[in-house]
Simulated assay, not measured.
Amino acid sequence: MRNWLLPEYIEDVLPAEAARMEQMRRKLLDLFHVHGYQLVIPPMLEYLESLTTGAGQDLDLATFKVVDLLTGRLMGVRADITPQTARIDAHLLNREGVTRLCYAGSVLRTRPDGLAQTREPLQVGAELFGHAGVESDIEIQHLLVQGLQSVGIAGLQIDFSHVGIFRSLVKNAGIAREQEQGLLAALQSKDKSEVAELTTGLPSDIRNALLSLADLNGGIEVLDEAQQRLPSYVEIRQALQDLRHVAQQLQDCDVLVSFDLAELRGYHYHSGMVFAAYAQGYSGPLALGGRYDEIGSSFGRARPATGFSLDLRGLATALPVAENGKAILAPYADDAQLHQIIAALRAAGEVVVVDLPGHEAHRAELGCDRTLVKQGSAWEVVTN
């Protein structure tokens, strides 16, 4: 057995990619900061109940579990930072008004997923707590769009849905839990024949509405069609109104907006509008987000919430490979003037690498495109 091998779907991030990911992380966190989002750094390990309560079975299955030798209790390695921010908002900050939080850190999952197909995503996200209106959804969506554009993603498409539409149909029809799960799976896979079979015996308006959800995907016209084909329940009218409002607010953001009313991702976790960001060159969503008002109650303090998260590893996969970092090679010398110049260059943001004695044959590995040389009595930077 080779001792240096890593587990499957666990990888090192090497210098070039690590530098690119770190630049993206800084840009995103700086953007969140100027919008009033405060950085939190939750622990990698918590008691399992705190990590998975209210987050649904999917997150429970994704979580690595270990036994705490100090207490004997079951602990989990976080698979998602969002529930941790909800816990922080509910119990540590304990604010009455709006709270804006952001984060960046590794998570660990039992199976690979996402664009990078890794079990250790680098998750970056922003969450807004304490406001239940569509205005906070729009703030989060604008922040996502600006964030992706700031790190070089062009040609964005945001795909929207609203779990409240399906939930309203289920509630008004009195559909049992098992039947609800079957319909959920059938709609996610756009299997209309399965939906038709599962809705046999339901009131005709509910049955037709559930069958219609599988077809209601496309541009803004989908919302007008949905208004015609779906029952005029209060929850459905409000959901369609909010989706229309969001589309209008994103018109000037250089983003294509689309809708898929059968997209019920995170149905047991989300409570309202959900969205996913896509772009050309990527095989799946770059970021996922939505409203999850009900999770706060799992921590004993119900708080409306909306947010998004993305995986920096996945985001970096399709971006153009950056050129090698530019650097200056400086000789190793006991020269006070040289040391002052090196310090000044570094203070100005330049990368200066000192050429240690005995490694002259390997200078090419340092990636330097310039060299500090002494011209007469002065040190100058010259291009190689």
Rank of each mutant, 00 (worst) to 15 (best):
F129M: 12
Q188R: 02
G105Y: 05
V151E: 01
H270L: 07
Q280H: 01
S258T: 15
V66M: 14
A209T: 04
T200Q: 15
L210S: 00
Q141W: 01
V353N: 04
V381M: 10
D12I: 03
S106G: 11
G307S: 05
M1V: 12
A79P: 14
E127R: 06
D30K: 06
C253K: 11
T71N: 06
L144W: 05
V124I: 07
C368F: 15
D369E: 14
N94T: 01
S297F: 00
M44D: 05
T199L: 03
L143Y: 06
L148S: 10
E127P: 03
D159V: 00
G72S: 08
G130S: 08
D80K: 00
L230C: 10
I41E: 15
R370F: 03
S106R: 09
V145I: 15
S161K: 03
V163S: 10
A116Y: 08
L223F: 05
S271K: 02
T52P: 01
R237T: 11
I10D: 01
L169C: 10
G130F: 07
L213A: 14
R167L: 00
D68M: 11
A344C: 06
P121W: 14
Q117H: 12
L223V: 01
E294K: 09
E46I: 02
H35S: 11
R303L: 13
P231N: 13
L288F: 03
W379Y: 07
E235N: 01
D335K: 04
N217Y: 11
G76V: 10
S258W: 03
R370Y: 14
F259T: 01
Q248A: 12
D355F: 15
R111L: 09
Y9P: 00
L39K: 10
T52M: 07
P331C: 08
E96Q: 10
V145L: 12
A126T: 02
A104N: 04
L198S: 05
D30V: 13
L319P: 05
A126R: 06
E221Q: 08
E22A: 12
A185G: 00
H142N: 14
V257P: 08
G314D: 11
Q280I: 02
A173L: 05
Y103G: 04
E96T: 15
V234M: 04
D215V: 05
Y233A: 02
L59R: 08
L216K: 07
L59G: 10
R2V: 08
R111D: 10
G125N: 15
L70V: 04
M1H: 14
G72Q: 01
V98D: 06
D369G: 14
L93Y: 10
D205P: 03
C368S: 04
T52V: 15
I236A: 03
G349H: 09
L356R: 12
P112M: 13
F166R: 00
N217F: 12
F129K: 13
